[in-house]
Amino acid sequence: MARAFRATTRGYRADMEAHERRLLSQLCADVISMLEARGEAWSDDAAAPDDSFAHFRRELAGLGDDLEGESGGAGPEPPEDAALARLLPDASDDPQEAAQFRRLSEASLRESKIADLRAARMALESDPVALSEAQAPVFGRALNDVRLTLAARLEIEDEEDAERVHRMAGGGKASTTDEFMAELYGFTTWLQETLFTAMLDVMPDDQ
């Protein structure tokens, strides 16, 4: 059984069983695969450094710079998958604005999440899991992306759903995939809560 994250003189540490670290690392790997697959699906756009040149050409051709035309068909569509949609959300209520924002920023957001998740997997190689002050937020972000992914799979959309999943995880021996996912969700939630409570505690008041 794991022991919660706590502050040490050099950062934070948590004692976790080998199988807990392995499971969590595998979950990070799953989220990485999901994000990479999304990247490959839109690789033509990701590998388009001449995007602003295309914009320039439109202006040159007298097509104007209306943003609707610019985003039409060029950028990635919002993800249909619920977990990806949660990790890579729309940045605006206005669909046009959201599409333009996504075209400009989704690839780098995806890359930064993949980098966080890879760093978390590295940290999970050591026993106990020890995080420096600089590593802790990175680990926390990765842990949160794992939680958001599990929550999407468990269809947590409001507080009642969260309560339902909490009850499902309380049963002890999980016998279905959903119960197992609910246990993992509970475990990662607890880890994150202890990590950020410790991080808030050591944060100076006058910041």
């Binding site: 937020p137 926390g140 949160n144 939680r147 958001l148 929550a151 947590i156 959309e157 409001d158 507080e159 759903d161 969260a162 939630t189 994150q192 809560e193 950020f196 409570t197 991080m199 808030l200 944060m203 008041d205 006058d206 910041q207």
Partner: peptide, 19 residues
């Protein structure tokens, strides 16, 4: 319903530098 209150408060403090 997923993000923890402690986490959200920490993000606001550390990213924006809020009290």
């Amino acid at each position: 319903p997923v993000n923890l209150m402690s986490y959200v408060a920490w993000v606001f403090r550390s990213y924006f530098g809020y009290s």
